[in-house]
């Protein structure tokens, strides 16, 4: 396990600075400038979302994994959350991508949730619904689910659903964040919700705000929570902005855009006269996206 990085505690980010060597055509302005997440469906796979919280706004749909005759099935339910965790994650997605549509599938709680099988069933359902962005501030450490999870996240990858998954808070190998076809997220300690860092020492690929994050809680409350769970929806929200503005991007391209626009990835001085306006940048990637998979 030596060398694996789960989170970034050192405020000195120079150790993870990445120099591209030349200016990147992909800029934040091109990637998500002016975007609101409008038209993008984001699914929060968690313990449910409590409706009516001003920080969460409307919840487009609520489903839950239920066990019936020994099988896990997904059915529509009334919006609810017993832990407050899913509500917190949804509020962060809303903060970053205010116009996206937020959906909920509950895989935890309500007696019987929280098993690896419930998580698999909920994730499978979310992927088959073709939600563009799936926030998963959860993982399972049980190795018997590895293969099934890997197949599912690969299915999502090729189907164009991006799964943004929390790294475990401790140095524990859990899944699916450990798989390369998802976007894995750990915490940095900066208070900037828009600051996303690329980690050149994976498996955790990106860091986002995960310390003392103001979050929506149950019954309209607000608290400050810490943990990788709360870093992850910052990246899910960013993904919603990017795919809202560039709907043709594949998951591979989206991850590349996240990398090129990360706050610690620098490409030297961009020469405006050579590359034109921001609106013209990224044209190559846009063309790839339109002709994509």
């Amino acid at each position: 396990m030596t060398g694996l990085t789960w989170r970034l505690l050192d405020p000195d980010e120079s150790a993870i600075e990445v120099d591209l060597g030349e200016p990147s055509l992909i800029t934040p302005e091109w990637a998500w400038g002016g975007a609101t997440g409008d038209g993008v469906d984001v699914c929060v796979v968690d313990g449910g979302i409590e409706p009516g919280h001003p920080l969460v706004g409307p919840v487009a749909s609520s489903h839950a994994v239920v066990k019936r005759d020994g099988k896990h099935e997904v059915e529509e339910v009334e919006a609810a959350d017993s832990f407050g965790h899913g509500t917190a994650c949804a509020g962060i997605v809303r903060q970053i991508a205010p116009a996206c549509r937020i959906h909920s599938v509950r895989v935890l709680g309500e007696r019987g949730g929280g098993t690896g099988r419930a998580l698999l069933a909920g994730l499978e359902w979310a992927i088959r619904q073709r939600f563009k962005v799936i926030n998963m501030s959860l993982s399972t450490a049980r190795p018997e689910f590895n293969q099934a999870l890997r197949e599912l996240v690969d299915e999502a990858y090729f189907a164009g659903s991006v799964i943004v998954a929390s790294a475990h808070n401790s140095q524990i190998e859990s899944f699916p964040w450990r798989f390369s076809s998802v976007i894995s997220v750990g915490s940095h300690t900066s208070a900037d919700p828009d600051r996303i860092l690329y980690n050149p020492n994976p498996p955790v690929e990106f860091f986002a705000r995960g310390q003392a994050v103001p979050v929506a809680g149950l019954r309209g409350s607000v608290s400050r929570n810490s943990g990788n769970s709360f870093a992850t929806p910052h990246v899910a929200g960013r993904c919603a902005l990017i795919v809202g503005k560039h709907p043709g991007l594949t998951v591979f391209q989206l991850k590349t855009v996240l990398y090129l626009t990360a706050a610690n990835v620098r490409g030297g001085r961009t020469d405006e006269s050579h590359h034109g306006s921001d609106g013209e940048r990224g044209g190559g990637l846009e063309r790839l996206g339109r002709g994509g998979h």
Binding site: H85, L138, N225, N228, S229
Partner: peptide, 9 residues
């Protein structure tokens, strides 16, 4: 349920 640490304040 999740096996994850967290804090809330």
């Amino acid at each position: 349920t999740t096996g994850q640490a967290m804090s809330a304040t």
